[in-house]
Design a protein around this nucleic acid. Structure first.
Lengths: 236, 236
DNA sequence: ACAAACAGTGTCCGCCAGACACAGTTTCCA
DNA sequence: TGGAAACTGTGTCTGGCGGACACTGTTTGT
């Protein structure tokens, strides 16, 4: 079994190891994760280094290694610390209303902590909080004729859309930011080469807000799911 | 105007600068990008450093800076070099067939160069090849009653889904790989905590293949788009 | 009392991106 | 024809990164 995977699982899921001898630890996983989140919120995930996190706590960077095996595990803890509990399903809400609320709450999480986009790419072990988000979606789709894999695929589809839109929205950025300049540069390029990209140039004429884009894709996905559910419940 | 944005635009779109004096350059942007792609294909994007790329070409790392302002621009060139031309729309194919083929071709690109997932996150300037992929989708949706922003949103929705599935598929990895261990560890965790995550545990009982997941989300999205198009063309 | 276990630190290594000064080469122009 | 200018590739240096390791001091069970 892989060591890294085991370490991460123990940190995220395992019991808070209880040694007895030696001095009491002055730090805790919670404080370390919170400090990491603070750095990432302020300067982005790339700015999170052992030095900076330790400095924020008035410790040396090597002391952090007494609590965390490496930076990857620190980031995993930061994610679990930054992610909220998923919203409780409203009373009497059907699956569509539940998924809509879920998607908007998830989008707000990404909005509060944009670095979550960078921290949650690639293969990794999900923590309890993250997994409970997944649980909500799958549970909301229970009992509508979808198979297990289909429910998981639907959850991935939904989460993926929110992720993508969050990335787009981050790309816009505040006015005057480097992100906004990139977007402006891209617009200029498209306009200059409008002959080669007529459809994009035409479609980009009046840009869309983030909320519009999130809403548009969400409605398409939910319409598609509704069509499948209708077929399945008609022919059970 | 931002310097970085300008540099990238010039490299990706600008004319191949034509100086006259001094020694002829021994390298070219094409060779450098190709070397970078070679490293990324073999060891991932994280392994791409100026040292390694230059070493592969038997040059020192500093010589690369004569061609490329920095690593970010090198990665942008690598992306443009690795991305294929988008598939030509088949004769007589309707929008749904065109988008289906497009999505599968895009998925194959991500499959050939998994590091494209890491290289195409966040705000950045698109190159000509990448933009022509976008062009295909938007053009395929022309003339079906969708507004410009809606066509762009649909393209983002589609591309986002393919991206997400590509990430999932990479997370699976070959048997025995660290990625597979992570996935196995996650499965173990879910099974151990099945009481807290009953829906996920049940849905994960028999896992789904990547092709299934790609197909599932794609059909949902296309069904959703079809519903919108039907509404728009009925009430024009 | 003493040894084991543990916490925090300082030092070291290798790797990274990039700034800068330098030597060698080519070309334009006076 | 002889600079001078422009350009290429290189060596050196800095600051930062993740992490290994040895060390000191502290706490606790035997």
């Amino acid at each position: 079994m892989g060591e890294a995977a085991n370490d991460t699982v123990r940190l995220l899921w395992g019991p808070p190891a209880k040694p007895t001898r030696g001095p009491k630890p002055a730090l805790s996983l919670e404080r370390i994760a919170a400090a990491g989140v603070e750095v990432a919120d302020a300067e982005g995930l790339a700015a999170v280094s052992m030095q900076k996190v330790a400095g924020l706590l008035d410790f040396t960077k090597m002391s952090l290694y007494r609590y965390v095996p490496g930076k990857a595990e620190l980031v995993a803890l930061m994610v679990e610390s930054a992610v909220d509990e998923p919203p409780a399903p409203a009373d009497g809400a059907d699956w569509r209303e539940q998924l809509t609320a879920w998607a908007h709450h998830l989008a707000e999480s990404f909005d509060r902590h944009p670095w979550l986009l960078d921290a949650t790419v690639g293969p990794r072990v999900l923590g309890p909080r993250e997994l409970s988000w997944l649980e909500r979606v799958v549970a909301a789709l229970d009992g509508h004729g979808l198979t297990g894999p289909e429910r998981m695929d639907a959850a991935v589809l939904l989460a993926g859309h929110v992720r993508e839109i969050a990335g787009q929205s981050r790309a816009a950025g505040p006015a005057g930011s480097p992100e906004a300049e990139l977007l402006a540069a891209l617009g200029t390029v498209v306009r200059q080469h409008a002959d080669r990209f007529p459809a994009v140039a035409a479609a980009m004429a009046d840009p869309n807000g983030r909320d519009q884009a999130l809403h548009f894709g969400l409605e398409r996905i939910l319409d598609g799911l509704a069509a499948l559910i209708a077929r399945r419940t008609r022919h059970p």
